[in-house]
Write a protein that binds this DNA or RNA. Structure first.
Length: 521
DNA sequence: GCCAACGTTGGC
DNA sequence: GCCAACGTTGGC
């Protein structure tokens, strides 16, 4: 029976799917689909799956029966994918042998054919340029450089995965691929409804939520004027150029010679007044309506980036900003948030690290991790010491109840401390990685999302690059998010592009990062 | 007692 | 009438 369980990467690593046909009786020919979570929990309906994953995970695009993500077919002309035949998942010999009732089976086959056609055409609706050279799945952008390499970072898996359910980035990169294929605004998401302006320059932010692609959290291309930015060719002799290429993978590192010399010092680096910060901000939350500054006081206004932090903190921790009345009475950003429903009696909640799960969308910090909040006017963050205690749980739960839509967590480093970057190792990113970790299915954080980075650079390289102060290909998200030491508001997308807004990001203490495995659970 | 297999039902 | 969801049952 074990061979009947097929991987279901659409749900994440470790998820398995099993389809059983009724072989006799009145419902002969009918099939039941079961899923097994990475922790072994059995799920036999979409309702159960939704309960299991929590309300933050949007399963509206997930075809429970097929185990795949079904995206609304774009209206653009579909381009067929050559030589990508859908391969029907094979059932076991036992099942095939016992298959009876041809009339029902025939109908089922017809359905499967229809579904097959759907699944073949829908994902195939992408333009030829920008297709992954290995898996054939398109990605947004011009198909050059970083996006392509990121896309192809999964190619080794792509080749090994046999069926439509495992067909490359359709599933592994499901979110990104889906977003990239959608060419029209949905008209229903917050961005569309708010009619937030598109950023023409980047083309990335303020996009319809259905069209946002995680892979293209586009990194700034630098200052554009320095020697590094002017250089457009590899030097051929730097350590990056000399590094032996990984088979099947494009090099993810830009030649040292043509990295922006301004580096993190001259660019955004979480700078609150940067364009990117504003864009990030507008992407993360609708900007709260702030009173229009009067007269010359406008210069004294904090940028919205920081205002929002305060806004959130006041809502999150009324005591933190108790001195100020503003915000305390502000309407919640998201007035109503459903608590996570209880699991079905037959379902056990996934294992969670002690004190790590506090609700549908919040993760309490693991022991040794500090939760730090910015306080208005304070030069140093307000720190809520870990391990998770009542003092940390309370505000989080309160935040959940009050509908606060995000939590800001900062590492125990000074906010503008830059040298902490070298402490940042790929191991730590697993907490913010959106993939399901087998055996560690943190529902709140990492469901449904593909890893942003598949092949972490070797630590030595990471240190070198960061010390150079150069643009590092290895940590674009970090750069965009402001890097360690700056506020991190992560916006994570669930299946189909729905945002996980209630996501806390725990950045470990520097000292813990030095201990190998200290962050592993 | 578990669970795969099958039956039932209510919403659409 | 279809089918998702879930109850029931019988083999192990």
């Amino acid at each position: 029976m074990a061979e009947d369980w097929l991987d279901c990467p659409a749900l994440g690593p470790g998820w398995k799917r099993h389809e059983v046909y009724h072989k006799s009786g009145v419902t002969c020919g009918r099939s039941d689909t079961y899923y097994q979570s990475p922790t072994g929990d059995r799920i036999r309906s979409k309702v159960e799956l939704t309960r299991y994953l929590g309300p933050a995970c949007d399963l509206s695009l997930f075809d429970f029966k097929q185990g795949i993500l079904c995206y609304p077919t774009p209206k653009v002309q579909a381009v067929a994918v050559p030589s990508k035949k859908w391969k029907k998942p094979s059932r076991s010999a036992k099942t095939r042998k016992r298959q009876v009732a041809p009339q029902r089976t025939e109908r089922k086959e017809t359905r499967e054919d229809e579904t097959k056609a759907d699944t073949d055409t829908a994902p195939a609706s992408f333009p030829a340029p920008g297709c992954c050279e290995n898996c054939g799945i398109s990605f947004s952008g011009d198909g050059t450089g970083r996006q392509g390499s990121r896309h192809c970072a999964k190619t080794a898996e792509h080749r090994e995965l046999p069926s439509i359910e495992s067909r490359g980035c359709l599933s592994v990169w499901a979110v990104e691929s889906a977003a990239c294929r959608v060419t029209e605004d949905c008209g229903a998401c917050s961005t569309c409804l708010l009619q937030l302006p598109h950023d023409v320059a980047s083309g990335l932010f303020c996009k319809c939520e259905r069209r946002r692609c995680l892979q293209i959290v586009q990194r700034s291309r630098g200052c554009g004027v320095c020697r590094g930015c002017q250089t457009q060719e590899d030097c051929g002799h730097c350590r990056v150029c000399l590094r032996p290429p990984c088979p099947g993978l494009r090099r993810q590192w830009r030649c040292v010679q043509w990295r922006c010399l301004q580096g993190k010092h001259g660019r955004h680096r979480g700078g609150c007044d940067s364009k990117m910060a504003a864009l990030r901000h507008s992407r993360a939350q609708p900007v709260p309506i702030l009173p229009t500054p009067q007269g010359s006081n406008q210069k004294h206004q904090k940028c919205h980036w920081r205002q929002c932090l305060q806004f959130a903190m006041k809502r999150l921790l009324p005591s933190v900003g108790s001195g100020s009345e503003e915000g305390a009475g502000s309407p919640p950003l998201h007035p109503r948030r459903a608590r996570r429903p209880h699991l079905a009696p037959t379902l056990k909640p996934p294992l969670a690290t002690k004190g790590q799960e506090a609700g549908a969308s919040f993760v309490l910090p693991p022991p040794g991790t500090d939760l730090v909040f910015l306080r208005e006017g304070a030069s140093s963050p307000v720190q809520v010491p870990g391990p998770a205690t009542a003092s940390t749980e309370a505000p989080l739960q309160e935040a959940q109840c009050s509908g606060l839509s995000w939590v800001v967590a900062l590492p125990q480093v000074k906010q503008e401390k830059a040298d902490a970057q070298e402490e940042w190792t790929p191991d730590t990113t697993v907490l913010t990685s959106p993939t399901l970790q087998p055996g560690c299915p943190s529902k709140a954080v990492d469901l449904c999302l593909p890893p942003v980075k598949q092949e972490p650079p070797d630590p030595e390289e990471g240190k070198e690059e960061n010390k150079d102060g150069c643009v590092s290909e290895s940590a674009p998200e970090e750069e965009e998010a402001g890097g360690p030491g700056t506020p991190v508001i992560m916006e994570i997308f669930s299946l189909g592009g729905t945002r996980f807004q209630d996501t806390a990001v725990w950045l470990p203490r520097s000292k813990d990062l030095k201990k190998p495995g200290a962050r592993k659970q």
